[in-house]
């Protein structure tokens, strides 16, 4: 029973439609909640209070108001822009983020598509984002945007290597590319989680994956593609209104994808940390989203703490630090698996 919807409705057209819409239903509120969290957390870290008015209680409706504003805004397409690419780019970026949700096991009873190559699929689909961003930067016909897009392409392509190597280490331990199986391999108490397994190698793997995932989602300290103080928002400088909101939405959707993947790979996914306590299909959703949110919080925390890397330092970190470490790790983990099972 990997998808309760197909169980009830059947695996036909309607079943597929409903199970594909569920992530969308999740992404939109999640993005709003994450934006609100980002606003509030950053504010409190900076001795401010953040939005307090919209929606009375601690400005909870601020993201809603922002989205409403963005919908109402004029959709401007620069005269010199490559119109077709310009329109397609935000959609592609969003699709890249959205499609990844198909393989994320929210609970033992719900996974959009329980494919055997789950993690491989997520890595592959996330790469679509690069193309979207490149298109956005190129089609804007703005020098700053182009610089931002070029930086993104270099950055995302480089960081896919350490992140994939990190994922590979976990896959070796779990012996499966199926995310549900990876979750199942970590059942029981929290010390069964892979992050504590094969100590310290998988812990280092987690760190590598987390850093690489920050870079893949263009989060600070790797936000050089949009670097507001350098490139004035980079690839989405020229975008306005709902198209801009798509980029924004995709960023937060992506944040959760990488957090959820990290939760699945290293923190037991939908497993309860306390054995059978509060476990089950429904609680599984709670645990996965909860673990994902904790990781999202760390992403936000890092963003408001750290300065930004420079392009060459970013490459240095990827190729000279993360990739060698990931290779050594994968070797060590492989050896461990071969020698001691």
């Amino acid at each position: 029973m990997h998808n309760f919807i197909t169980y009830y409705i059947g695996a036909g057209f309607w079943g597929s439609l409903v199970s594909s819409i569920i992530p969308l239903v999740f992404i939109l509120p999640f993005a709003l909640v994450a934006i609100w969290l980002e606003l509030k957390i950053s504010a409190h870290m900076q001795d401010r209070v953040g939005p307090m008015r919209t929606g009375k209680w601690h400005g909870w409706a601020q993201p809603l108001a922002d989205v409403t504003k963005l919908i109402q805004k004029e959709d401007i397409i620069p005269a010199a822009a490559d119109k077709a690419l310009y329109i397609l780019a935000p959609a592609l970026v969003f699709v890249g983020a959205y499609a990844a949700y198909a393989a994320i096991p929210f609970s033992p009873a719900y996974i959009g598509s329980n494919i055997n190559l789950g993690i491989f699929y997520i890595v592959a689909v996330s790469a679509l984002v690069v193309i979207g961003i490149l298109m956005a930067g190129w089609s804007s016909n703005n020098k700053w945007s182009l610089l931002g897009a070029m930086r993104t392409a270099a950055q995302l392509v480089s960081y896919e290597i350490p992140s994939s190597l990190a994922i590979l280490a976990v896959v070796m331990v779990a012996g499966s590319l199926n995310l549900n199986d990876i979750c199942a391999a970590q059942s029981g108490w929290f010390w069964n989680w892979f992050v504590f397994g094969k100590f310290p190698f998988l812990f280092i793997t987690f760190i590598i994956y987390f850093i690489a995932s920050l870079a893949e989602t263009n989060r600070s300290p790797f936000d050089i593609p949009e670097a507001e103080s350098e490139l004035v928002a980079g690839y989405h400088t020229e975008y306005s209104g709902m198209r801009f909101a798509f980029f924004y939405l995709a960023e937060y959707a992506n944040m959760f994808v990488v957090a959820a993947v990290a939760a699945v790979l290293f923190f037991g996914g939908w497993n309860s940390p306390f054995g059978t306590f509060l476990s089950g299909p429904v609680w599984g959703v709670f645990w996965l989203i909860g673990k994902g949110m904790v990781l999202v919080f760390i992403q936000i925390w890092l963003r408001w703490t750290l300065p930004r890397f420079r392009v060459d330092q970013l490459m240095y970190l990827s190729w000279k630090i993360l990739t060698p470490f990931a290779l050594v790790n994968i070797f060590a983990v492989g050896l461990w698996v071969v020698l001691r099972g």
């Binding site: 870290m45 900076q46 600070s220 103080s229 408001w304 703490t305 300065p307």
Partner: peptide
């Protein structure tokens, strides 16, 4: 700090 990308020191 803001130029370099760190927002928080700016507000401190």
């Amino acid at each position: 700090g803001l130029d370099i990308g760190a927002f928080t020191p700016f507000l401190f």
